[in-house]
């Protein structure tokens, strides 16, 4: 009985830890949005890099690429706009540093905690998240395999789907989804989670 109670208490503490970190993260994100200091943003980025130790370059690279892809267009267009209209371009630095700090913070949190545990306050929510995430990864892999097959058949295909490929792709995608859903339902039923 003793080890069992110890395990339950340990598990409870772990769950609390995940939720506590997530709540702290949300508060921190809001605080970052309310501070308009470039130096403080830089400080947060450096602090997060120190916390991340061995994975700092990987997470920094991921956050930087995200920033480049999603915030890059606005930064570039604002710089172009500044060529014709006198505007304060220093705001761009704050905007991008804040975005980098929040993105890095998100990736840091996701690296250190198990998000599935954050949702455990709702049984259905956590089950739904686990299933969705696994299905998303599965579908992503399937799509990548589909792209690879297309590329291997046509050098000019690159990473685009053409009209004639959409039908078989949708069929495969949907059939895979239905098959997976059926399999997962059977799995849940066999574990007694679905009562007939």
């Amino acid at each position: 009985m003793g080890p069992f109670i110890f395990c339950v208490l340990g598990l409870k503490r772990l769950l609390m830890r995940e939720k506590r970190w997530f709540m702290l993260y949300l508060v921190f994100v809001v605080v970052l949005g309310m501070i308009h200091s470039i130096w403080l943003m830089l400080g947060v980025i450096i602090l997060l890099s120190v916390i991340n130790k061995n994975v700092k370059w990987r997470l920094l690279k991921k956050a930087f690429l995200t920033l480049l892809v999603f915030n890059g267009t606005v930064t570039l267009s604002y710089l172009l706009y500044a060529l014709f209209v006198p505007v304060d371009t220093s705001i761009l630095l704050l905007l991008n540093l804040r975005a980098l700090a929040i993105t890095l913070l998100t990736f840091t949190l996701m690296h250190h905690i198990n998000f599935h545990k954050v949702l455990e306050f709702s049984h259905k929510g956590s089950v739904l998240y686990a299933f969705t995430y696994s299905q998303m990864m599965l579908s992503k892999k399937m799509l990548q395999a589909y792209y690879s097959a297309l590329i291997s058949r046509s050098a000019s295909m690159k990473r685009c789907i053409r009209k004639e490929h959409l039908k078989p792709l949708l069929e495969t995608l949907f059939a895979t989804m239905l098959h997976q859903s059926k399999e997962q339902s059977l799995g849940l039923r066999s574990r007694g989670l679905i009562n007939d």
Binding site: K124, V127, L128, F131, T132, S134, Q135, M136, L138, S139, K140, M142, L143, L173, F174, M177, L178, Q180, S181, K182, E183, Q184, S185, L188
Partner: peptide, 13 residues
């Protein structure tokens, strides 16, 4: 839930 997660995956793809 499996059906809904499958749909979410479809939307993601």
């Amino acid at each position: 839930i499996p059906m809904l997660s499958g749909l979410s995956a479809i939307a993601f793809v």
